[in-house]
Structures are given as structure tokens and as C-alpha cells.
Design a protein around this nucleic acid. Structure first.
Length: 276
DNA sequence: GTTAGGG
DNA sequence: CCCTAAC
């Protein structure tokens, strides 16, 4: 009766990933205290975040349980010494650094640690530009490159990650654009015997409701507004941060700061700003 | 009080 | 998910 086996939903994972991408791993309390992610993780604790992150890490890197494509490892799990590997595996970010790349000494065995981090970056980027149909690989790469640091072959890594995410059903690829897959309204795997409070994902009536605003509708609209404001605030925060970095380089160009301020105000007002 | 690791 | 040790 006690434990309800609180299942982690896509929204919670998304919030966790975005929080890690923004604050960094190990700052669970900060993520939980962040007003943007707090409403999504109300029933989660910092310990839960940590556990989930750990499980996610081992799942993403260690190929979870079953691999239908390739032959599964019969004995050794991941202790393969890999004597001769000439082929560049798409899912294995091998480092063939012959030149002077940024080879971090502490980045030796952390394949399983940065894997979900890239994942988080992807989710972060897609969350920011989700208003559109989707984002192509170049846009995502560009966004992440601005937000975080290098790798060179990051595009290839990103491609692998995107492909894997699509295979997992967490992402959806249409044409050449990727987007975050919402809750599939399928009837196959939707037990959810109980609804967890109000769900901000309900399809808002038509976007504008008139005088008949019941409590439920009001709460629904409020939830939607919060969710929408979250994206806008996030974009605004991104713009502000970018502006801060630029302003540090060139303090004379405060005109951009003014522009960003305007954008921020507009975003705060709820307007949709192209941000290009 | 929070985080990381083991059960 | 719960417990415990270290910070």
C-alpha cells in the first residue's frame, strides 16, 4: 500500500535532463529548487533525481537490456578490451585523436557519464526551439555548440544519440527535423489507472475560453500558461545569458543588451518572439 | 542538510 | 525505493 512505484514519465525525465543541462550534474537540490522544474518534480526528491540519473546513465550507455540489432553479449558485458577496432561504431564514441584535440585526461572512462549529458543537451535544445515543427541536426548542433563546449565529432555523436532516441521513441523524426515526442495517445501502453493530479498536457480547448471558466478549465489554462511561460522564460534566459557573454567581450555594444531586454520583457508578457 | 554509493 | 557514509 505504501510504495506506488512512482514511474518516471517523459515530462519528469525531460525536466531532469534539462535541469542537469542547465545547472549541471550533482546539483539536484538546485534543480529541484528551480522554479522552472519544480512544478514538474513536485513528488520527486533530490535523491530520486540522483537515482534516476544513475539508472538513466547505465541504461543509455550500457544498452540497457536487450539489443535486437546486434548480437548480444553472451558473457562479458562491457569488459571487451577491443584489440583491433578499425570500424567506427556509430554508437561508440571512440576517440582516435591523432592530432591535438581537447583530450581530457579525466575523460577516459566516462562514456557512460557524458552520454546522458549529451542527451540532456539534446532535450534542452529541442525544448528551446520546440515551437516549430522541429529542428534539424544543424540547428541542434549549433545550439549546443553555443551553449556548451566542443567536441569536434560532436555532430556524429549527436547523430547517433538522435537516432537512438528516435529508436527509443523519446524523439520523433520527421523529414530532417527532430522533435520531442509527446505522450503517445496510444492505447497499448497507457495503464495509468490513476491520473496524477491535474495534467498540464491536456489539449487546451481552443486556446481561448470565454466566460465559462470553471475551476478545472481555469486550472488547465493556468497549467498550460505555466508550461508555455516555461519555454518562453527559458528562451529569454538563454538570450540573456548569451548577451551577458557577448557583453563581456564587447561592453560597448549595449544596444544588444537593450534588444535582449526588450525580448525578455516581451517574453515575460507572453508574446511569441521569433528570436532569430 | 546534501550528495554519492551500496543494498 | 530505502539506508548509510562522507562532505
Amino acid at each position: 500500500m505504501g510504495n506506488q512505484k512512482q514511474k518516471w514519465t517523459a515530462e519528469e525525465e525531460e525536466a531532469l535532463l534539462a535541469g542537469v543541462a542547465k545547472h549541471g550534474p550533482g546539483k539536484w537540490k538546485n534543480i529541484l529548487k528551480d522554479p522552472d522544474f519544480a512544478p514538474f518534480l513536485t513528488h520527486r526528491s533530490n535523491i530520486d533525481l540522483k537515482d534516476k540519473w544513475r539508472n538513466l546513465s547505465v541504461s543509455t550507455s550500457g544498452q540497457g537490456s536487450k539489443d535486437k540489432s546486434r548480437a548480444a553479449k553472451v558473457k562479458t558485458t562491457i569488459a571487451a578490451p577491443l584489440p583491433n577496432v578499425q570500424n567506427s561504431s556509430p554508437a561508440a564514441p571512440l576517440r582516435h585523436n591523432t592530432d591535438t584535440v581537447m583530450d581530457d585526461p579525466s575523460n577516459g572512462t566516462q562514456e557512460g557519464k557524458n552520454a546522458p549529458r549529451y542527451n540532456a543537451m539534446i532535450f534542452e535544445a529541442l525544448s528551446a526551439i520546440e515551437d516549430k515543427i522541429g529542428s534539424d541536426i544543424s540547428a541542434i548542433v549549433h545550439f549546443i555548440e553555443r551553449r556548451h563546449e566542443v567536441p569536434q565529432n560532436f555532430r556524429r555523436l549527436l547523430s547517433s544519440r538522435l537516432r537512438r532516441l528516435v529508436a527509443q521513441g523519446k524523439l520523433e523524426k520527421v523529414q530532417n527535423c527532430y522533435k520531442i515526442r509527446k505522450e503517445t495517445v496510444l492505447g497499448t501502453k497507457t495503464p495509468s489507472p490513476k491520473q496524477r493530479d491535474v495534467k498540464p498536457r491536456q489539449s487546451l480547448s481552443s486556446g481561448l475560453m470565454t466566460t465559462s471558466e470553471t475551476v478545472d478549465d481555469a486550472a488547465n489554462a493556468a497549467a498550460y500558461r505555466v508550461a508555455d511561460a516555461e519555454n518562453k522564460a527559458y528562451m529569454a534566459a538563454e538570450a540573456v545569458k548569451e548577451a551577458e557573454r557577448i557583453s563581456k567581450v564587447a561592453e560597448d555594444t549595449d544596444s544588444m543588451l537593450q534588444l535582449v531586454k526588450e525580448i525578455y520583457e516581451r517574453c515575460s508578457r507572453g508574446e511569441i518572439v521569433p528570436l532569430a
